[in-house]
């Protein structure tokens, strides 16, 4: 087995890298793939929290590179899905505790046992980013339809293109708010795609369910009703190679919106 190493990065902080990582990882594992997630955000680890695994971590990636344990010992199995593992970051150390070479080496070893290795990248473009990207051959650039996030994503894309090892990168547009786009108060998906001229792999709507799911340590892909969860599941299927159309986020959700749609439909018929 030779797994695919995908780094999930963004440049800007707070756009949803870690949430994306937890959800894509969980969604991939649900399809039966063997998945390991590596948190490379040394000193600021959070992936364990989103997965609800914070109490199960014994060894971290720093313990592995400093040879206090074997790589396999440091992998924490998910509560629900045995196909899913986490290699946690150390909370007490900084970004210099692991080098690019060491990360590359870890990825190489994990490739033998897993279908997917998802690397959670820290914010910024410094050493932490360089480390996270070192072992990867694919990248997912997470951004939101906000100016600062798009600008940072453009910078990241420039850096990724300069790296020979990165064979492809795709854009994931997070926290999209269809209502704001409708009133022209937020850049649309097309706007962002055009400005960054990158291929899209997912459009995730803003969803308050993300907050509650984080509170519970339960990725939102496990919630069948959630729109964001559906969108993340679709991203996972696209990664595997399925041709899945993008969700129609414009679909009105509330009762009032449905009434409105009904009437505007009537109106349209009247006119014709």
């Amino acid at each position: 087995m030779s797994g695919r190493v995908i780094v999930i990065t963004s440049g800007k902080g707070g756009v949803g890298k870690t949430t994306t990582n937890a959800n894509i990882g969980t969604a991939l594992a649900k399809t039966g793939k063997k998945v390991v997630m590596i948190d490379t955000d040394l000193g600021l680890r959070n992936l364990d929290l989103l997965l609800g695994l914070e109490n199960r971590i014994v060894y971290t990636i720093v313990d592995v590179v400093e040879e206090r344990c074997k790589l396999k010992q440091a992998l924490v199995k998910d509560k629900k899905n045995p196909n899913l593992c986490l290699l946690a970051a150390a909370q007490t150390r900084d970004k210099t505790a692991v080098t690019e070479e060491q990360l590359k080496d870890i990825c190489e070893q994990l490739k033998k046992d897993f279908d997917f290795i998802l690397v959670d990248c820290p914010a910024g473009i410094e050493q932490g980013f360089q480390n996270a990207v070192a072992g990867a051959s694919e990248a997912i650039v997470v951004t939101t339809p906000e100016m600062s996030a798009v600008r940072d994503a453009d910078r990241i894309i420039g850096l990724l293109e300069a790296k020979e090892e990165i064979k492809s990168y795709k854009l994931l547009l997070n926290r999209v708010r269809p209502n704001l786009i409708k009133t022209n108060d937020m850049m649309s998906v097309d706007d962002v795609v055009e400005i960054l001229s990158a291929e899209l792999i997912g459009i995730i709507p803003e969803d308050t369910g993300i907050i509650t799911s984080t509170n519970k340590g339960e990725p939102i892909v496990n919630d069948e009703k959630s729109l964001a969860g559906k969108a993340y599941n679709n991203v996972a299927r696209r990664i595997i190679g399925e041709d899945v159309p993008f969700l129609n986020l414009e679909e009105p959700q509330g009762v009032m919106a449905k009434v409105k749609k009904f009437f505007s439909g009537l109106m349209g018929k009247e006119k014709v």
Partner: peptide, 25 residues
Amino acid sequence: VLGFFRQTDTEQTESSKDTACNRLR
């Protein structure tokens, strides 16, 4: 009733989204 449900046309002035796009470019 139709007028109430009909979506109000957005104004001709540059929307904040257009401003954002242009500044970003």
